[in-house]
Design a protein around this nucleic acid. Structure first.
Length: 913
RNA sequence: GCCCACUUAGUUCAGCGGUAGAACGCUCGCUUCACACGCGAGAAGUCAGAAGUUCAAGUCUUCUAGUGGGCACCA
């Protein structure tokens, strides 16, 4: 079998995915067992404008690991892919394109044409991320791919909107909302990020009191809003202002008069104790305004320039220019008291970073009290179960408890247009269709609401709308089979935005939990410890990693860091896994170079008791690893699973097992004059074929366990193994074409764990390691053969005799002398191993006595430190009395062991003189 | 202001009540017939600080400091 010397990921990645997809391996229908248990995951729909970033790569890897393992275990698995329509993002891109290419605005071409362009844009560019997911090896069922603006999903949106409206859970109202002047749309609280600004200013303005020469001073961070002031409020108990309550103010720069009112909301201690009230531009002021029946004067346009209400002097000015002008004008009037530096946090638009303006606006809202309880009641029963539980479960519950109403209308065209119509009198009719609205209104002179719904409104239905529910159709086979989904994998940032809302709507509309478990991944941070972002330039592109390191290396690397905690990016760590991929490749290469006559045969791992220690040991290790990997994955401890697989494969299988059986399975040149390159003259013996079959089968089992993490490499190598076919498949996939994807994921067999063999093998390993240590420290050349003398009991003698050939080879020795006591020249290097075997290596002429003394003394010192600590424990009467007896015994045994070793080493030291 | 998490080898991180671990880096030695993306042997940590609980504490409790995050407030 010809196989390249180094693993080339590209070659393997190119062919397999297409085949898997074409043969339908990703669809649940591939499972032939009608009674198979379903297992499902819906993908957090990436933004249709998006391209793959590190967060996706991490989360997709974890979902794929979960799905691939369950599929191999015979579950009827579905991982459902799709994208959301990303209202603002797409709209912004199309607007920009229109402006650049045709110098037109959306209004120039009209709503219908604009939407046509949006769909075109989606057709042209919306596949970026789905193609990238194919590159990742994500085993999603593309036949069930969904988009939030698909016909059925859109119908679901209308159904949900209307139902919630009919039940009074959705309302339309005039409220202070977050307005993004750049996108010219309202935003929900969750789309607004507070950004602390150190160079803020607090401006103190003096307002003259009518018919008086007094003034009252108010402080503000947004002086321009004074143009919309309709009162000044003070605390009713504030003695400073008692005589002013009820007086009128001649509001400067306007020709309005506004009252001084008393309201509990004002804190006397803060600022001057007097607050300007701008009901149309501040949520608190709005409430004060409601209480006192104050007029609401909106002084800004939707692009945050001042409007006519602000006065001719200000109309058309940008809000920040207006701010400067207000301050200047007050100064000219002698009414500017002072300007202080003031640290303030400003609400900004999460997407475009524009400072959000709170303004009075009529919008649609979801009332959150009853809605919230749907999720909160479940949360109190620990549903969904968060992983890691701390801190997410608590943060989630706390957030639900303090939830405010959700602004769902957006002043965009791209999205689900709100199913509400207005007649000429402005009466509103909410209906599933225009026809129904007409029936309600008894007229056809209706205009549909211009606005669309928040993208998250449709995403909130993802856990059931994707399975076919749309209000008209309320039961589908997929919904029955795959809902509730088993687990959701997502980032911290959308727990509130998305996870919570899916829990609510799924409970409300299909009366199910959306998903049982939620895995919250950490964030992969840049080298600087900050979240990766384009503006910071600290991002790492997963596609670059795919090119440089290979998809499989990237995947298993990401799984290895998936502990739930944030992790700082480190360039060199991924190389570990590129090297690992190459190691797997080469171990397979080695096995294949010596595979003549061998087959993959799991019967070969059923040991009968007459097998070698090495075989019993590796089979034991293999099964233990399988059991532990499954346990780890059941607990979503991906990093533990990776670590177990890495060390089993590299340390146990490559470093020891392959080396131990190398001579047995490779051709020897004993057969007379045979040309070494001419393998044909050599004949395999039955035991050799047995040994080859066993190592190939162990390798095959390891590849299966690695497959969910490294799908391409394992598939590529699996096909190179002798006699692989769909006969090796899990029983649920017997008719499918051959692939490692559909083989059994090893469960591990507890009865195959052989602690005795493991401990015996440990002694062999320790013996070889000690000899190697002596060789290295005594600077014995690799080419120099040595003699090993071991004094030990009969049990050790049996073990070492059985492994004599391997010990000689791996310790580069030509003699192994086993006896009850040592009889060696003084010029020998010595060591002791656990269990009391003494090693001596005669080094006539090679030994440096001084160096050997140091070496022995160092070992004695190390042991002595431990001995003292342990003796300290035993000397503590409380410990001996109160600690569990087995613990005490453990320590005593250890002390005895160390004392034996120290004694032997000391004798050796004395013998050196 | 309230709440939460984190602080372990040079670096990035595991471990979370009973002998301090991994990877990378570092030192020394190897063209050993799968792999130099390799092989062998090493060095390297008062587990942020203080107090407490316990026979026993990176591991549990409290406090302190630093870092990061969430929520509220922001005239």
């Amino acid at each position: 079998m010809e196989i390249a010397k180094a693993y080339n990921p590209k070659e393997a990645e190119e062919s397999h995915y297409q085949r898997w997809e074409k043969l339908g391996f990703f669809s649940p229908e591939i499972n032939e067992n009608p009674n198979a248990t379903p297992y499902s995951i819906v993908i957090p729909p990436p933004n249709v404008t998006g391209s793959l970033h590190m967060g996706h790569a991490l989360q997709h890897t974890l979902m794929d690991v979960l799905i691939r393992r369950k599929r191999m275990q015979g579950f009827k698995t579905l991982w459902l892919p799709g994208t959301d329509h990303a209202g603002i993002s797409v709209q912004r891109k199309v607007v920009e394109q229109l402006r650049k290419d045709e110098n037109k605005s959306p209004l120039d071409i009209g709503r219908e044409e604009f939407l046509r362009r949006c769909w075109k844009w989606k057709e042209d560019y919306g596949n970026t991320i789905t193609e990238q997911m194919r590159r990742e090896g994500a085993s999603v069922d593309w036949t069930r791919q969904r988009f939030t603006m698909d016909e059925s999903l859109s119908r679901a949106v209308r159904e949900v909107f209307c139902t919630l409206y009919e039940e009074g859970w959705i309302y339309r109202g005039l409220r202070i909302v977050n307005w993004c002047p750049k996108d010219k749309t309202v935003l929900s609280d969750l789309e607004v990020k507070e950004e602390s600004k150190k160079d803020g200013k607090l401006t103190y303005l003096k307002y003259p009191i009518k018919d008086s020469d007094r003034t009252i001073t108010v402080a503000t961070t947004r002086p321009e809003t004074m143009l919309g002031d309709t009162a000044v409020a003070v605390n009713p108990k504030d003695e400073r202002y008692q005589d002013l309550i009820g007086k009128m103010i001649a509001l400067p720069l306007t020709n309005r008069e506004i009252p001084i009112i008393a309201d509990e909301y004002v804190e006397s201690k803060f600022g001057t104790g007097a607050v300007k009230i701008t009901p149309a531009h501040d949520p608190n002021d709005y409430q004060v305004g409601e209480r006192h029946n104050l007029p609401q004067i909106l002084v800004m346009n939707d692009d945050a320039t001042m409007n006519a209400n602000a006065g001719a002097e200000f109309e058309g000015l940008d809000r920040f220019k207006a701010r400067e002008k207000v301050v200047e004008d007050f100064e000219k009037l002698g009414l500017l008291e002072k300007v202080e530096d003031y640290e303030i946090s400003l609400p900004t638009c999460e997407r475009c970073k524009t400072i959000v303006e709170p303004i009075l606006s009529e919008q649609w809202f979801v009332k959150m009290d009853e809605m919230r309880d749907l999720a909160l009641d479940l949360a109190k029963q620990n549903t969904p179960k968060f992983s890691p539980e701390v801190p997410h479960a608590k943060v989630y519950t706390n957030w639900l408890e303090n939830l405010k109403d959700w602004t769902i209308s957006r002043q965009l065209w791209w999205g689900h247009q709100i199913p509400a119509w207005y007649d000429e009198g402005g009466n509103v009719f909410v209906a599933r269709t225009y026809e129904e609205a007409k029936d309600q209104a008894k007229t056809d002179k209706l205009i549909q609401d211009n606005d669309v719904l928040d993208t998250w409104f449709s995403s909130a239905l993802w856990a059931f709308s994707t399975f076919g529910w749309n209000g008209e159709i309320t039961e589908t086979e997929d919904l029955n089979t795959f809902s509730p989904t088993d687990v959701l994998v997502t980032g911290r940032d959308i727990i509130f935005l998305w996870v919570s809302r899916m829990m609510m709507t799924t409970k409300k509309f299909v009366n199910k939990v959306a998903f049982k478990d939620v895995i919250v991944t950490g964030t992969v941070l840049g080298k600087d410890g900050k979240p990766m972002s384009k503006s910071r330039g600290n991002g790492v592109d997963p596609l670059d990693l795919f090119d440089k390191m290979g998809v499989d290396a990237t995947r298993i690397y990401l799984a290895s860091i998936a502990t739930g905690a944030d992790i700082r990016w480190n360039d060199t760590l991924i190389e570990t896994y590129r090297n690992f991929a190459n190691k797997i490749w080469n171990a397979t290469r080695f096995c294949l170079m010596n595979s003549e006559g061998a087959t993959v045969d799991h019967q070969s791992l059923m040991l009968d008791g007459n097998d070698s220690i090495a075989d019993k040991w590796i089979v034991s290790r293999l099964n233990k690893t399988a059991i532990d990997v499954n346990k780890a994955l059941d607990k979503y401890e991906f990093h533990t699973a990776v670590s177990l697989l890495y060390h089993f494969f590299w340390d146990d299988f490559c470093d020891w097992y392959i080396e131990l059986v190398k001579d047995e399975i490779t051709f020897t040149d004993e057969s007379a004059d045979a040309d070494e390159d001419d393998l044909s003259v050599l004949k395999e013996s039955a035991p050799q074929i047995e040994a080859r079959t066993r190592i190939i089968t162990i390798l095959e089992t390891a590849l299966r366990m690695l497959h969910p993490f490294m799908p391409y490499l394992t598939e590529e190598l699996w096909f190179k193994l002798p006699n692989v076919s769909n006969a090796l498949h899990h029983e649920s996939y017997k008719s499918a074409e051959a692939t490692i994807m559909l083989t059994n994921f090893p469960n591990g067999d507890a009865s195959a764990i052989d602690e005795k063999a493991e401990s015996e093998m440990q002694s062999v390993i320790e013996l070889i390691s000690k000899v190697r240590n002596i060789r290295a420290e005594m600077q014995i050349k690799p080419s120099d053969r040595i003699a090993i003398h071991v004094a030990c009991d009969r049990n050790f003698q049996r073990i070492f005799t059985e492994n004599k050939a391997q010990i000689l080879k791996l310790a580069r020795a030509d003699k192994l002398n086993l006896s009850n006591s040592l009889d060696v020249p003084k010029a020998s290097a010595k060591a002791v191993i656990t269990g009391g075997a003494e090693i001596a290596i005669p080094l006539e002429g090679l030994i440096d006595f001084e160096q050997e003394r140091n070496r022995l003394q160092n070992q004695i010192n190390k042991l002595d430190t431990e001995l003292q600590r342990l003796n300290g424990q035993l000397g503590n009467a409380n410990f001996v009395e109160r600690a569990p007896a087995e613990k005490v015994q453990e320590i005593r045994d250890r002390v005895a062991e160390i004392e034996t070793q120290i004694k032997a080493l000391k004798l050796n030291l004395e013998a050196l003189g």
